[in-house]
Design a protein around this nucleic acid. Structure first.
Lengths: 140, 140
DNA sequence: ATGGCATACGTTATAGCATTACGCAATCGA
DNA sequence: TCGATTGCGTAATGCTATAACGTATGCCAT
């Protein structure tokens, strides 16, 4: 059920690479990871990423120009997703919040804005990196 | 009162360019605008932008890799600023919302995250571009 | 089956955004 | 006057993303 049978070979390879990564990957990093699978050019990666984003399986993190596999690929209930990105370990926490959606919705209505894509990203230190003494490991 | 006496010549030139623009400018666009003022290299622009961002006078729009002058340079009450960016006319609406800050604050507290920078950007169509018949002009 | 359309692919080249590294100059306080 | 800090100028480089070309494949209405 987690696999998307409609995916092409390239798309599946890119999604797999992102799924195995613990942190967001740049398009060029993905390209390097997939050289052994025959990838030769950035466009192969970008085209796959475009499709995967359309399908809601991948998100682009604008503030770091990198991509992550969606943490909740089965649930498309939330249009607006927020990310907390640790600048030290690189890990990303994906979440959504109805309250934020509601507040943005109010503004949108009041200003007759028609949003197509919404980006919410916080970067900073995750709990483990802010306070290493609490036992959470950064590596692995 | 709007001028910052501490600004260097380069910083003042960059801020002025952004202030006169109706839409966000890329660093390289700013560079081109300031060639007559002696600017020769991207770094001159980036250095000035860095300082202006530190001072809260300029914001970077991550989703379009461009920069805008702060719409409320006198008011630093809001740490979290949101932007609505029209993909057609390029105009940007800058706003803040205490409700959103409160919701994000809750998440941060619950997850012991220590945010350093928060990005909230909506792109889509502004009222004028979504419904040109309502009389608002796009050009000029 | 055949023509037309849509989608994906592969390759090369190029465009656009940002930083590294070096050295010099001005300022300011100890 | 020394040293530290900050800003400046230049050249080179690196990273991110797209344009433009042609090809292959699957689908399906005729």
């Amino acid at each position: 059920m987690t696999a998307h049978p409609e995916l092409t070979r390239n798309q599946a390879l890119v999604l797999k690479a992102l799924g195995q990564a613990e942190i967001p990957l740049s398009a060029y990093t993905i390209l390097d990871l997939l050289r052994d699978d025959g990838f030769r050019a950035p466009l192969q990666v970008y085209r796959a990423l475009d499709k995967l984003q359309e399908l809601g399986l991948v998100h682009r993190l604008e503030s770091i120009s990198a991509f992550v596999a969606c943490a909740h690929p089965h649930c498309h209930a939330h249009e607006i997703i927020a990310f907390a990105i640790c600048r030290t370990c690189g890990r990303v926490n994906e979440f959504s919040d109805a309250g934020i959606e509601e507040r943005l919705g109010r503004w949108i209505e009041a200003h007759k804005f028609e949003p197509e894509k919404t980006t919410i990203e916080m970067s900073g230190l995750c709990a483990a990196c802010a306070d290493p003494s609490n036992g959470a490991s950064v590596g692995a």
